[in-house]
């Protein structure tokens, strides 16, 4: 069906591409993870892979330290973007986004992830259709967010000429900044005409080149969530791809390890405080001369009972 549509719509596509001229948007994304991902991380990766027709999946990367190997890997697969998931301790997931040959790279902490499978949303979209990306205006406010936005644009916006791509825009991906984090949502676009209940019939399809002037927006657009859901906290931006100087570091980010350690320490702190208090009390008693051993001795007084009645 897709092939039929393509062949039908090829004629008018050609004369559209030409006048645009200029640079063509050519992106390919390498999606892979490190070792030690859980099943949820893996499912999330699969979800993203199914949403991005211009992506390529690869086997888990063996190393967690020599990430520069990813550059060679990307070159091998003709990819100019790398979307790498690094799992730590079987629970923390970090997402790296990079422009492959020479950067920049963004490292983000991935939280609150819910895969399509566990969310049970009723939305659905064509596999391979191109999403509409919706960015929060806050992305343009700060330079590091602009870099991140650009990377999102390269990775999540499916280029027009990508392989396996299907026509029609039937889903939207929302990128919002709230609470210093980036929240990603994916919705299906549901069009209903006010008269009819069902999605508009093929007769009135938008295949027609000129939109009708009389009723510009008669149809009712609503969204149905598809999934997955995830929240990203930017940590670090490196100048080149998986290396180079740090050009941004998030001050507010606290690593999950630190959070866990602090929790543990807060629990352990009670003992330490008590033992400290014990020591303090001992010193105080010594200073007052109340201890039999150690501490400060009182100077002998000539009128002391012990001296008088010795």
């Amino acid at each position: 069906m897709a092939a039929v549509y393509k062949s039908l719509s090829k004629s008018d596509k050609k004369d559209e591409d030409k006048p645009a001229g200029g640079k063509k948007n050519k992106q390919r994304v390498l999606i892979l993870s490190s070792r030690g991902v859980t099943y949820r991380h893996r499912h999330l990766m699969n979800d993203l892979y199914s949403l991005l027709p211009h992506s390529r999946k690869d086997a888990k990367l063996d190393t967690k330290t020599k990430l520069y190997q990813l550059n060679e890997l990307a070159e091998l697969y003709n990819c100019n973007n790398v979307f790498f998931f690094e799992a730590r301790k079987g629970k923390d997931l970090y997402a790296w986004m990079s422009k492959a040959p020479n950067g920049p790279t963004v490292k983000m902490h991935l939280q609150n992830l819910h895969t399509m499978e566990e969310l049970h949303f009723t939305g659905n979209c064509l596999k391979g259709s191109r999403p509409i990306l919706s960015f929060d205006a806050a992305f343009d406010k700060q330079p590091h967010l602009r870099v991140i936005k650009e990377l999102f644009l390269h990775i999540f916006a499916v280029p027009k000429g990508a392989r396996k791509v299907k026509p029609f825009a039937d889903h939207v991906m929302g990128f919002t900044i709230a609470d210093g984090k980036i929240w990603i949502r994916c919705y299906q676009i549901n069009e209903t005409e006010p008269g009819k209940q069902k999605p508009s019939a093929d007769g009135e399809m938008d295949v027609d080149q000129a939109p009708k002037k009389g009723k510009p927006d008669e149809t009712n657009v609503s969204l149905v969530e598809i999934g997955p859901r995830l929240v990203l906290t930017p940590i670090v931006i490196l100048e080149s791809s998986f290396g180079g100087p740090v050009i941004y570091e998030n001050k507010e980010f606290v690593s999950p390890n630190q959070v866990r350690a602090d929790l543990r320490l807060a629990k352990a702190g009670r003992y330490n405080r008590r033992s400290e208090q014990g020591l303090e009390r001992k010193v105080k008693r010594g200073d007052l001369g109340l201890n039999t051993e150690g501490g400060r001795k009182k100077p002998k007084d000539a009128l002391d009972d012990k001296v008088l009645f010795a």
Binding site: D136, V147, K160
Partner: peptide
């Protein structure tokens, strides 16, 4: 950051919308 951005930035303003399909609120 800005130089890195300029290095990779797509010329969105000169491209037709259907090429990138991204909007900022």
């Amino acid at each position: 950051l800005l130089s890195a951005l300029h290095r990779i930035q797509l010329p969105i303003s000169s491209m037709p919308f259907s090429e990138h399909q991204s909007l900022t609120t």
